[in-house]
Design a protein around this nucleic acid. Structure first.
Length: 869
RNA sequence: GGGCGGUUAGCUCAGUGGGAGAGCACUUCCUUGACACGGAAGGGGUCACUGGUUCAAUCCCAGUACCGCCCACCA
């Protein structure tokens, strides 16, 4: 066998992946005879690139699907891409800008064509990146939220919800993104802490111009749209002023009332607040309660406009320029009584980063309260479970306070609303234009229709992802067998944005939860706990990690950092490097196994149980436990533990101990089959986490089948579990460790010979193992005592006296401490009386153990002194 | 303001009501029939702080401090 000394992932990964994909190993068809294991992949943005977050969310999905496939389940991972309206539109607009054209120059149809062209040509790059990382979804079933089927599903959903009265059109306060020129949903608004200024402005009373009421604001520019001043109803400072009018600075052209409203916080600012219903959420509510006018004073570019109300000389100014001008003017007029620094949280668009402008606007909404109730019930009844559980509370909290969902967006790229307007503005909702015309002719006596120019929120199509990708609303075998899926895996940041909506729509449309469990892996941060971002320069590209260490090492490296209850990973690249070393270890153990002169038998054939050596029995018992443990860890999404357990088994137990044990003459008869059997099992256990190297090794050693991907998952019932033999081997391990420690202290070189006098009642094989592990030679000696401990004492006796004295003293000190602690404990009457009897017995046994050890060391020390004397 | 996590070795993190653990890093030694991306041995921690429950607390409870996340209409 001529394998290189170092494992080279590059020589393996790409080749194996192509083989898997070409042979259709990722593909699966519905099979009602087997239990389904379906995961719908959260569709990455068509504009997206792989980042470390994909490592922590997509690797577990790949692991689960590979694991369940090996268990014989009807396992399939359904991939796809999201059309990512805002992101794609931004990319295309940027492209156009390079050619010197704008979106409007091009016109809607040609713009959408360009977006399609871009999506087809450059979009989906992430899919090939996923291939590099070894992710193996069923590519043949890949869907795109804008493809024909999914677009039809979106229209069906919209029409259905509309006809049920769950979708309505209304003029409401929405989040306007001036840079993106569109509304965004609450969930896509980020709060950012900023230093700002709180300006205290005096509003003069209309009827007593010398008196005024002082209001604190961070947004003087919106004063132009003020319609009232609000104070708390119980605020004695302003009690006499409620019902009075003030003149609105800086123009002083309008009189506005002072109203009382409980939403006002008395302790903030001056306790009096300006009310601008068209540009602030709280003010909007106050305005509704007091039936106030709601004039907008900002246009869609966030410039001051006089479209609805006079704004004097500020007309046309950008919102920030207007702010500066108004502050200046107030100051000059002596109405600015105070300026103080103020820390506030600002709403920012997640997508564009621009400051969100609350605006009154005519938009489409989904009524959520009724949809939320069953989604909450599913959680409360335990039919929907979150892992970790705490995300359930987040989900619950959000659904309990749910607000109507603004679904219309002023973008061109996306699903256009299936809404047409008659000349009189009456909306007609239908799945197709033809149908819409029919309805219009019938009900309105016209077929002159104009389609709504808005598109739907991207999450509207994602919300039905678990069943739209299976063909809904058309019936299909896939829908029959694969809905609901078994688990959803997704980042904690989109529990509201996506998970809750899928649950609500799944329950409503399909009548069934889309998944019973939601696994939320940790978010990835840098080692200082900061978010990874390009601007901070701390972002790590998973592609580079895969390039440097191999995809397997990347996967193992990130999984080993996952903790079941963890909410973040402080990513350490060194974990990937360690995993590369781990893979190299696997590779070299394989080289050893393949180089055995006696060769290897067929796959998975163990010798007669009676022929197994103590080392064989030990490694098999360890394998048995490892299978059970890894299985249990996967089943409860504890990937960190699964990775650790495998790591330990492969590196420490198999390589460091069993492979060493296999080298001695006494173990030769059975080592071939056992090494082969154990390694075959180990590779199958490892495959979900490290698909490439496990396949490469599995194919190189005796195996059955064409690919490890469809090999059967290891069965603990096929692995002998002789715990007594295992314990006997472990006794030898401990003896070996103590002896090696002694050698080191004696200053013996590793190859310096050492004769072990082992008692004749210690089996030959055990003595030989001990000798091999410690670099000694064996000499059977009846005089050496009865136990391994006593054999060790024999070695000690040949050590230099000073060394032994020091060592014995140290041991005595340690033992004295232990003995004293236990004696004190056992002398404590309450302990003996109240502690559980078995605990007391255990403590007694420990004390006895330490005492006899003490005696042994003491006599050894004495004999040392005697021999000197 | 509400909710939820965290605080254990230099770093990243496990863990248990009854003798403090891993990996990396560090020190020393070692190319022994797979592997120096390796092997062996070793040093290193009043388990954040205060109080309580208990025979016994790093672990359970309460409070404090600090760090982090999510939600919310202090303009």
């Amino acid at each position: 066998m001529d394998l290189p000394k170092q494992y080279d992932p590059k020589a393996v990964e790409d080749r194996l992946y192509r083989r898997w994909e070409e042979n259709g190993y990722f593909h699966e068809d519905p099979d009602p005879a087997r239990p389904p294991f379906i995961i719908s992949m959260p569709p990455p943005n068509v504009t997206g690139r792989a980042h470390l977050g994909h490592g922590s969310t997509y690797t577990p999905m790949d692991v689960l699907v590979r694991y369940h496939r090996m268990r014989g389940d009807n396992a399939d991972w359904l991939p796809g891409l999201d059309h990512a309206a805002i992101a794609t539109e931004a990319v295309v607009i940027k492209d156009l800008a390079r050619e010197g054209i704008t979106r409007d120059d091009l016109g809607r149809d040609r713009f959408v064509d360009r977006a399609w062209e871009w999506s087809r040509t450059f979009g989906g790059a992430i899919e090939s990146q996923f291939r590099v990382l070894g992710f193996g979804p069923d590519w043949q079933r890949s869907r795109f939220t804008m493809d024909e089927g999914l677009s039809a599903a979106v229209r069906t959903l919209f029409v259905r919800l509309y006809r049920e009265g769950r979708i309505y059109r209304g003029r409401r306060l929405v989040n306007w993104d001036p840079r993106g020129q569109t509304t965004v949903s609450d969930a896509e608004v980020e709060r950012v802490e900023r230093d700002a200024t709180l300006w205290h402005v005096a509003y003069p009373l209309r009827d007593e111009p010398d008196r005024s009421i002082v209001v604190a604001t961070t947004r003087p520019e919106t004063m132009l749209g003020d319609v009232a001043i609000a104070v708390h109803p119980d605020d004695e400072r302003y009690a006499g002023l409620v019902g009075e009018y003030v003149m609105l600075p800086p123009l002083l052209e309008r009189a506005i009332p002072i109203v009382a409203d409980a939403a006002v916080e008395r302790t903030f600012g001056t306790g009096a607040v300006k009310v601008t219903p068209a540009h602030d959420a709280t003010d909007y509510e106050i305005g509704r309660r007091h039936d106030l006018a709601m004039p907008s004073i900002l246009d869609l570019q966030a410039r001051v406009t006089d479209a609805e109300i006079p704004v004097g000389p500020y007309n046309g100014l950008d919102r920030y320029d207007a702010r500066a001008r108004i502050v200046d003017d107030l100051r000059n007029d002596g109405r600015l009584v105070k300026e103080e620094p103020h820390r506030m949280s600002l709403s920012v668009s997640e997508r564009t980063g621009d400051t969100i402008e609350p605006m009154l606007s005519l938009q489409w909404f989904v009524r959520m309260a009724e949809l939320a109730a069953p989604a909450l019930e599913a959680y409360h009844s335990g039919r929907l479970r979150f892992i970790p559980e705490r995300y359930g509370r987040t989900y619950e909290q959000w659904l309990e306070n749910i607000r109507d969902w603004n679904i219309s967006r002023q973008l061109w790229w996306g699903h256009r609303l299936p809404v047409w307007y008659a000349p009189d503005g009456t909306p007609v909702v239908a799945e197709t234009e033809i149908e819409a015309r029919e309805i219009a002719r019938r009900d309105l006596g016209t077929d002159e229709l104009v389609q709504d120019s808005d598109t739907l929120d991207t999450w509207f199509s994602s919300g039905i992802w678990p069943f739209s990708i299976l063909g809904w609303p058309q019936p299909s075998v896939e829908l029959e067998c694969w809905y609901p899926s078994q688990v959803l895996v997704t980042g904690g940041d989109i529990v509201f944005l996506w998970v809750a909506r899928m649950v609500m729509l799944g329950l409503h449309v399909m009548g069934k939860l889309p998944f019973p469990e939601v696994f939320v892996p940790p978010l990835v941060f840098d080692q200082q706990g900061r978010k990874m971002s390009k601007s901070l320069g701390n972002a790590i590209d998973p592609m580079e990690l895969a390039e440097r260490y191999g995809a397997d090492a990347f996967r193992m490296g990130i999984l080993r950092q996952m903790r079941l209850e963890g909410q973040e990973i402080r990513f350490m690249e060194s974990r990937c490097e360690e995993a590369r070393n781990f893979n190299n270890k696997i590779w070299n153990a394989t080289r050893f196994i393949l180089s055995l002169p006696e060769g290897l038998p067929g796959a998975r054939i163990l010798p007669e149980t009676a022929a197994l050596t103590i080392a064989d029995r030990w490694i098999l018992a360890r394998l048995n436990e490892t299978i059970v443990s890894v299985e249990g860890s996967f089943d409860r999404y504890d990937f960190g533990t699964a990775a650790d357990v495998l790591w330990r088994f492969v590196w420490y137990e198999f390589c460091d101990w069993y492979v060493e044990a296999a080298k001695i003459e006494e173990n030769r008869a059975t080592r071939g089959p056992v090494l082969s059997f154990v390694w075959n099992n180990a590779m199958r256990l490892l495959h979900p986490i490290e698909p490439f190297i496990s396949e490469e090794v599995w194919l190189a050693i005796p195996h059955d089948g064409k690919t490890i991907m469809t090999a059967t998952w290891p069965d603990p019932l096929e692995v002998p579990n002789d715990l007594n033999a295992a314990a006997a081997f472990e006794a030898i391990q401990h003896a070996a460790e103590r002896l090696r420690n002694l050698r080191a202290e004696m200053g013996l070189q590793p190859r310096e010979p050492l004769t072990l006098e082992t008692p004749s009642n210690v089996p030959d094989a055990a003595a030989a193992l001990l000798a091999h592990f410690t670099g000694g030679t064996i000499e059977r000696s009846p005089a050496a005592g009865d136990t391994l401990d006593e054999a060790l004492a024999g070695v000690r006796a040949r050590a230099p006296r000073e060394l032994l004295e020091a060592r014995y003293e140290k041991e005595l000190a340690r033992l004295a401490g232990e003995v004293e602690r236990l004696e004190r404990k056992l002398a404590n009457e309450s302990f003996v009386a109240k502690a559980a009897p078995d605990v007391v017995a255990k403590e007694r046994a420990k004390l006895d153990g330490y005492r006899s050890e003490q005696n042994g060391v003491r006599s050894a020390l004495e004999s040392l002194t005697d021999s000197v004397a």
